[in-house]
């Protein structure tokens, strides 16, 4: 089982890359025959990824999301699920290249960094942990999607304003849809991340006897979430929309990525389980 897991782990980024190539051909070469096959392609990839996650955790006898790279793989999986739902809902494939490229990057990094060690940390056996980690990750996914939609909004808005009726204009959906998706994703991201963080604090109180342990990851996550929440509330109260709201979503996500990277690379945290 371990060897199957090993093979699947390295096959997965190849499969994601192949799907990105399919979307590249749809976007830039307008291949209608491929357009008609995306649902089956995405569903197959979803099944393969689900199988990969299941096999890996059965082989290692762990639960999912036990380390950063495990989480990245789950993040890519979540993006794939969300994108499939979006595509089936709006019947536009123009955003696929961008969203699935992001998923591919997460899978690629994850595949080449798995530790292949059996998990021993007792904390990870708690069901609350799984909910905390899942909600946090789905929250991150929503914020990432919000940033992607915001970037696409900025691109399409620029096309519309400067009358650039090229291939990007053709393929991307309407600007009000991109704007709505970006704002909705931020809201969903803030809520899920908020609940995930709260659960984390509650779990910390149970295990570490403190709601706010002095851990750099916890502090940075809390700060980023509060900044996101306050900015979002202000933006809604001031009825910001369009370009400025898009810039805000992108800036927020850059802050989130920078903060998370800094924590992972520069500090020690009890949030490391491998």
């Amino acid at each position: 089982m371990r060897s199957i897991s090993f093979v699947l782990n390295y096959l997965l980024p190849v499969a994601y890359l192949a799907v990105v190539v399919v979307y590249y051909r749809i976007f830039f070469h307008k291949q209608k025959e491929l357009e008609q096959k995306t649902t089956i392609i995405l569903s197959s990839l979803l099944v393969v990824h689900f199988f990969e996650i299941s096999i890996r955790h059965l082989a290692l006898n762990t639960i999912p999301l036990s380390n950063a790279f495990d989480s990245l793989s789950f993040l890519g999986f979540s993006i794939l699920v969300v994108y499939l739902i979006i595509e089936l809902t709006i019947k536009n494939k123009g955003t696929g290249l961008f969203i699935l490229s992001f998923a591919f990057v997460t899978i690629f990094i994850s595949a080449f960094n798995h530790q292949w060690q059996k998990e021993t940390n007792a904390l990870l056996s708690s069901p609350t942990f799984a909910i905390h980690a899942s909600l946090t990750l789905i929250g991150y996914t929503a914020l990432a999607l919000s940033a992607i939609f915001a970037v696409l909004y900025i691109m399409q808005n620029r096309n519309m304003k400067s009358r650039r009726f090229g291939i990007i204009y053709d393929q991307l959906p309407a600007i009000n849809y991109l704007e709505r998706m970006s704002i909705r994703s931020v809201a969903i991201g803030i809520i899920l991340l908020g609940v995930g963080i709260l659960l984390g604090h509650w779990q910390a109180a149970k295990i570490l006897d403190s709601y706010w342990p002095l851990d750099v990851k916890v502090i940075v996550s809390d700060i980023i979430w509060v900044v996101y929440l306050i900015t979002y509330i202000f933006a809604r109260l001031l009825k910001w929309r369009g370009r400025w709201m898009a810039y805000l979503a992108v800036s927020g996500f850059i802050l989130l990525v920078a903060g998370s990277l800094a924590v992972v690379l520069l500090s020690e945290s009890f949030h490391k389980f491998y």
Binding site: I90, Q156, M160, Y169, P173, A174, I175, N176, Y177
Partner: peptide
């Protein structure tokens, strides 16, 4: 695909704003 008359081009552009 795509509008090939001026009056339909207006509808097409509107759909790129409001879907």
């Amino acid at each position: 695909e795509g509008a090939v008359s001026i009056s339909f081009a207006g509808v097409e552009l509107a759909r790129k704003i409001f879907s």
